[in-house]
Design a protein around this nucleic acid. Structure first.
Lengths: 120, 120
DNA sequence: CTGTATCCTAAGGGATACTG
DNA sequence: CAGTATCCCTTAGGATACAG
């Protein structure tokens, strides 16, 4: 018994919808890097060093499509493009912070064995 | 630059660790169905009708391994087995509620077009 | 009743190379 | 600078069947 539909797909819980908006490996890092303000394409690559162009590109598009992020292009040369969070995007920071806090809780708990790597 | 390791895998943020614990399609529905107390194998299949045996089985095992859920087997016949949340598991309800609230926020927002299906 | 194995498919995501 | 395309591989997860 389906609960609702969004863009052709069937969802059983609101949580699944949340996952469409912020799920996957890269959407959360991208949103977090926008917390303090607008960024340009190249800025993301500095803030998220291990992301590939393909993933940065496709996930930015996905975040635009769900209106989590807005893209603004300035017709200059060389081209300048800025991305920033929408109200949706900012609202998601609450959830992301909650996910972060739980992760820290897990890390600090004795039954979770964490091995810190030396910084580079 | 890796941040830390857990069980042989490298993690860059606490959020990734959270996802190991509650990520995937079925862990959250399973945890939620345990909110009000212990359940038996067959109870899950009633509460989460569209889950397959394979996924119920494998995700219960995964949740045991991360100590989110504890399994108690009673040597009776027919066999009786009960699953319930650990302290870890209960703590995760905070995060899950946050994910749920964001999903509802998305559903209620005008730019997200929701089509409710008739109950069956 | 409570699992467990085997096969298979779809989708996410990495590597790499090219463009306005 | 800021994309965009193409190929490929891994893995989550579905269908199905069987076992203690």
């Amino acid at each position: 018994m389906a609960d609702f539909k969004y863009q052709g797909r069937i969802y059983y819980t609101p949580i699944e919808l949340t996952m469409t908006f912020i799920g996957g490996t890269w959407k959360i890092p991208i949103i977090l890097s926008l917390r303090k303000g607008a960024l340009r394409y190249g800025d993301f690559k500095k803030m998220i060093p291990h992301i590939t162009d393909k993933m940065l590109f496709s996930q930015l598009r996905a975040l635009e499509k769900t209106e989590m992020v807005i893209r603004k292009s300035y017709r200059e040369k060389p081209p300048r493009v800025e991305y920033k969070l929408t109200a949706f995007g900012k609202r998601s920071l609450l959830v992301i912070d909650s996910l972060h806090r739980f992760g820290e809780y897990l890390m600090s708990h004795e039954s979770v064995e964490i091995v810190r790597q030396p910084g580079k």
